[in-house]
Amino acid sequence: MPGLEDLYREIILDHYRSPRNRGELESPPAVRVEGFNPLCGDEIVVTLDVEDGVLADIKIAGTGCSISQSSASLMSAAVKGKPLDQVRGLIATFKGMMSIHESTLPSNGAGGEPVEAPEPEAIDVDALGELAALQGVVKFPVRIKCATLSWNTLTQGLDEVGVPA
């Protein structure tokens, strides 16, 4: 049975206590997207500036649990200043690490048997840097939606800007 230390890594707690890139960019010109987790009522607001094929700036607002907040903070630090194709690639890698498709998850508070984390070879964890700390979330299926909330919201924002998927 997975332990709490698998979930609450030190990096996660650090980003939870001291979130990076907090706030909102002025919108417009920034694109503003809201995300909701119907399970817990958490809300997240992602504002982003896209300039010359680069995610020039990003800020995160809203409230949520330590996993959703730290994931959003880690994400903002990882994608800020990156070319858009790299951002898309990082999103894909991160969601790959979350291994099981969210559409198969219970969305209404139901639990489930913990599932095994994906084989390390299956994804390029090295490319994720600090984000790899969120790998343990996979062992707590109910919390995966917390970890992916900000990423799905960012994806929605990129779609709105018309960034190729």
Binding site: G3, L4, L7, L39, C40, G41, T63, G64, C65, S66, I67, G109, F140, R143, C146
Partner: peptide
């Protein structure tokens, strides 16, 4: 956050609901 409370409590075998 209630989610985090519920998660830690579970470690102690205590089942409480977290959410809206």
């Amino acid at each position: 956050h209630p989610h985090d409370i519920s998660q830690i409590l579970d470690e102690y075998g205590v089942c409480v609901r977290a959410g809206h």
